[in-house]
């Protein structure tokens, strides 16, 4: 094992767009790997044995259900420095849109009234995570050390923040024009 800092990432209620943008740093991934190891990402499906002990943990996606909370808490515990990665994790973004309707209506819409559904029902198996009444940003449940906004964040923004962090520097904020909410 090298003694380079460890980066690990995960997604909760998100669309994977932030991770796509992470891949958009292109050949700079190699530069990043000079500086740090990437221990786990949703792409590796955690086949390497769960979420590793990490120096920098990136969390994409909002918190929508009980499973998200459980996972988020584990990541917080294992990450020295936790980064809210993208608008869903930090602001709420698209997953928030269901907050304007009662949960019951949202579930009916999803499982019963979708046009292709026949004899739909709302699943209630014990194994399944419970949906939260309101979707929340991750900071509602765990302390967050840094926020990268953006839907998705720009590749340049990601590279700037992550490479700073793995070198032990914490930016005060994100300089313009790297800072954007859309």
């Amino acid at each position: 094992m090298s003694n380079k800092p460890m980066i690990a990432s995960v997604w909760l209620g998100g669309c994977a767009g932030c991770h796509m943008s992470l891949l958009d740093i292109d050949e700079r991934l190699l530069a990043l790997l000079e500086l740090a190891d990437i221990g786990a990402t949703p792409i590796t499906d955690f086949k390497l044995g769960g979420f590793p002990q990490a120096d920098v943990g990136l969390v994409e996606g909002a918190v929508c259900n009980t499973d998200n909370i459980r996972f988020l808490e584990e990541i917080r515990e294992k990450s020295k420095f936790l980064v809210s990665f993208g608008d869903c994790a930090g602001w709420g973004c698209v997953p928030f849109m269901r907050n304007f309707f009662p949960l019951e209506q949202v579930m009916e819409r999803g499982y019963i009234f979708t046009p292709s559904t026949v004899d739909g029902f709302i699943p209630d198996d014990e194994e399944l995570p419970r949906q939260l009444e309101k979707v929340q940003p991750i900071r509602k449940f765990v302390p967050v050390d840094f926020h990268i906004p953006g839907c998705p964040p720009n590749a340049d923004t990601i590279f700037y923040v992550v490479s700073e962090l793995v070198q032990g520097r914490v930016p005060d904020s994100i300089p313009q024009p790297l800072l954007h909410f859309d």
Binding site: G90, G92, F100, P137, R139, P149, S173, P175, Q176
Partner: peptide, 21 residues
């Protein structure tokens, strides 16, 4: 509103969302 937030380096809000309908 966005421009002012960028000027001040706001990356998130520390406050609880109200989610008004």
């Amino acid at each position: 509103l966005q421009d002012r937030a960028y000027d001040e380096g706001v990356t998130h809000t520390r406050y609880q969302y109200l989610f008004p309908i």
